[in-house]
Design a protein around this nucleic acid. Structure first.
Lengths: 206, 206
DNA sequence: TTTAATTTTGACCAGTTGGTTAAACCAAAT
DNA sequence: ATTTGGTTTAACCAACTGGTCAAAATTAAA
């Protein structure tokens, strides 16, 4: 049987992707060597090039994955028929949960956004994310007088900021405010879900 | 005259620091090579090692500088006798101004926070920044009933988030919302100063 | 069992990495 | 004019960089 390039051994390819994910997200594209990834995966360096011809191609695969994590499908929540306050609370909660479970991704993405903006932008385009969906949602609510007039883009960035930043800056904040106690910070992030929701809802009251 | 190690040629040392600052902030510690810095400074690679023995030492010098930018002395504003709303507006405005002028620093710092948290924490300690100052300020206002009860740490992080994130994620946001038009984003950040201030003030009303 | 295709490996490549060293350079002091 | 000191440079180092290649090992088809 003639295997197409896509028929690569599933297990090895997965091992590589898992290892690459781990190392790339910790050190970024430039800070990571193919040897590090190979070692992490417990395989030969040549095998990396056999599965993903170049470092860039391997990175793209991992990056696409990481991105789909940080900008997931929120369509379900948005298109539900609950009120705006309810939607905000659900989005904030689910988003912060996801970020807490992938705590190295935010800083990684922010770094790569600045290193190669177009790469991320292209991946985002392909992912089918439509920012207008979020914008329209808020425009409607403003027109109906449910929230006060505010530039929807500003509001979206406010929400994203308050969810992403405390995870991206976690190692420092954890040291400053919580004596580097990991559980204390986890608890803090847990409470924060409610805090951020209330903060936003309170600030957009008509 | 016997020159002490501190008597290094001011001009060369400055050239190096300027070049290192530029390259480090763009590429991070691991993404930067000594040769890049030497070329940027228009000097020999050996000369780098002559002035700053190792890459780490040079990085520390630059990093300390960058950090003093992002956590500047806000004591003046805090200790003034204006009302809390006024203080918030001034802090947000001045902080966002500074960030806009140093737009690569936020992502750089966030990256290095995750790469080597202790380095940054130590530098912060030495810088004399006292987080309690900010905390106490809000505790007082809450006790006096000027703002609603809220964990001061949450409030501080809310403010920092909304100021820092839009600069750190700038290249992507600029593409998504403004067709990569730099002036449009600058304008957006300009308006944002007011938006964030109002957003915070509105959300902490008693 | 032979054949054919895929998977894995180690040796190797030219270029780069951070860092060292000794010699050259240069201004000022003697 | 020579010595002295800091400054700058080119040559060099071992280790590592991303990447290639041909041969070996494995697997599956005939």
């Amino acid at each position: 049987m003639v295997k197409t390039p896509e028929t690569h051994s599933q297990s090895t390819e997965n091992k590589i992707l898992e290892a690459a994910k781990k190392v790339f997200i910790l050190h970024g594209l430039e800070g990571t060597s193919m040897q590090q990834i190979a070692s992490e995966a417990g395989i030969n360096k040549s095998l990396l090039h056999y599965y993903f011809r170049t470092k860039e191609k391997l990175f793209d695969a991992v990056f696409t994955y990481a991105f789909h994590y940080i900008v997931p499908q929120m369509e379900g929540i948005l298109s539900s028929d609950s009120g705006i306050n309810d939607k905000i609370e659900r989005i904030v909660t689910e988003y912060m949960d996801m970020l807490s479970e992938n705590k190295f991704i935010p800083a990684f993405i922010l770094h790569e956004i600045n290193r190669n903006p177009d790469r991320l932008y292209n991946i985002m385009q392909k992912s089918g994310i439509k920012p207008e969906m979020f914008v329209n949602q808020f425009v409607n609510e403003i027109q109906q007088g449910n929230i006060r007039p505010i530039d929807p883009r500003q509001l979206i960035i406010n929400i994203l900021s308050m969810c992403i930043f405390p995870v991206a800056a976690r190692p420092l904040i954890q040291r400053i405010f919580f004596g580097n106690n990991e559980n204390a910070y986890r608890q803090f992030l847990e409470e924060r879900k409610k805090v951020v929701s209330e903060f936003i809802i309170q600030s957009i009251k008509p």
